[in-house]
Design a protein around this nucleic acid. Sequence first.
DNA 1: TTAAACCATAGAAAATATCTATGGATATAA
DNA 2: TTATATCCATAGATATTTTCTATGGTTTAA
Lengths: 299, 299
Amino acid sequence: MTLKQLRYIVTVADIGNITEAAKRLYIAQPSLTAAIIELEKEYGITIFNRGKKGITITNEGEEFLGYARQILEQANLIEDRYMGQTKRKTKFCVSSQHYSFVVEAFVELLKKYGGESYEFHMRETQTFDIIDDVAHLRSEVGVLYLNKFNETVIRKTLKDNGLFFTPLFKAKPHVFIGKGSPLASKKKLTPEDLKPYPRLSYEQGSHNSFYFSEEILSTLDCDKDLIVCDRATLFNMLVGLNGYTICSGVISEELNGSNIIAKPLDIDDYMEIGYILPISTKPSPMTVKYISLLEELVK
Amino acid sequence: MTLKQLRYIVTVADIGNITEAAKRLYIAQPSLTAAIIELEKEYGITIFNRGKKGITITNEGEEFLGYARQILEQANLIEDRYMGQTKRKTKFCVSSQHYSFVVEAFVELLKKYGGESYEFHMRETQTFDIIDDVAHLRSEVGVLYLNKFNETVIRKTLKDNGLFFTPLFKAKPHVFIGKGSPLASKKKLTPEDLKPYPRLSYEQGSHNSFYFSEEILSTLDCDKDLIVCDRATLFNMLVGLNGYTICSGVISEELNGSNIIAKPLDIDDYMEIGYILPISTKPSPMTVKYISLLEELVK
DNA sequence: TTAAACCATAGAAAATATCTATGGATATAA
DNA sequence: TTATATCCATAGATATTTTCTATGGTTTAA
């Protein structure tokens, strides 16, 4: 195992294609192929499945890449310390459910500490992918919620993946609706009130368990179900179709505009929103800064 | 920078001699010399001073070695994970002031988790070296005390070295004396009582500031001063010369024998004993186990 | 069916690591 | 003082590793 090999496989994993990665690394494709095969042979594992349309990462490979990223991060500290101002980009990634305060903190972080050269990722994605991203160090930190329904399952998943959850705040469930919705005049909403309207929720891909849902009460029956991936799309539908979605009620007028309003939902449940980190890695300085921005914002 | 180079310099630093390290690494001495020079050139630093009697580590070198050890530790995780039962030895090091409970915990750790192949170091050493060892990752954890006299200085030193202190317990100062000492009959002892007897303290090498003393009240005047390095030696002198030493009063009959007794010292001071860890590194699993053993023992 | 994309293999060339031999400097012992 | 041993650096030869170019097989897309 050499640092070079580790850099190679991480680049290949990021790009998803050996030929392209070789170009990025300024070496010939067969050299890269050979280096990867050598590494795989050394540890008797298969890191990549070679498909005919690029590569895919095996499960073993994901695990190995986790180790690799960690080593490289340490090695980069030396470069940073001794190489003066190299143009190695600051890299920082967050995976999160769709919360505007997470994006807000991300924007703040970028403004304050982005500097001249960076590569920041804001991954608003599916619950399982959040866990997966953080577990494999593709993201430094993840944000998701627990409630009494999903808590056991999520906590077990986190534990299995070597992660831990730190609560940020507890929220009573709210309903997001468009300003012009017939429900907008009510002070509180009950599940009954919502019955006639389309329910919006976020796509959860293949991990389609109710436990991974971004919305509480996902088990409740509902006639009109709309599944989306994008927060803006969701908001458009809230407004255009008089739809609703159930969430934490944390809403920023700045980011969401004034067309969306939150109403308390009259039900005995809670959402505990917090962040997840790997147990075995110290959070980077950037991560620490991001978390303190999150904490500030939710106050 | 390659992992090989890092392994090389760490070995050289440990052994203190390029020729000998080359043997240990199964390479020729000029190869090792060249590898080191190459690395030094790459980052424009001098890691080792070549004396005519082996090498010494420069200040730059110490810092660099800190990074190197950290990277290698991460890299070893891969070996551990994928190489099955290699015979890489479990390595674990503690640096501490002279407390028997620290040794006890160390022994327990070894019994429980030592396994078949290990390299454990128990470094009972001078206060400054404890800080230095942990700061440069030569030791995983250090144990020392704070009191109101040394607290400011020690805390600043810790901070400068990227370390943090976690308290284990607070102890009232005690005097250790031999069972046969004329003072043995008293219930409590005052500084006046001690005046006629030889005071024993631990050598602190070149960092001879009072602040780094292992004993509180080190600034008090005393006619008969005995300075030693070894706990057994110290105990021998307590018994043989009717000497005394001031410490935390935590004493294990099992380890120290019944010839030594502790008497409370009548004075308004305290000792807060705790452990130090680097801020920027996650403690290893072995370190976590050791700390929980310490915590159990001091209960 | 053709072209393009992608990864693997083979053999040559280049770069790197290691070796043996040797020298200079200094401590150690006779 | 002188001989000897220790220790690190240098030089040139050799071995190993990495990378390159060229090419082939397979699949997807047009």
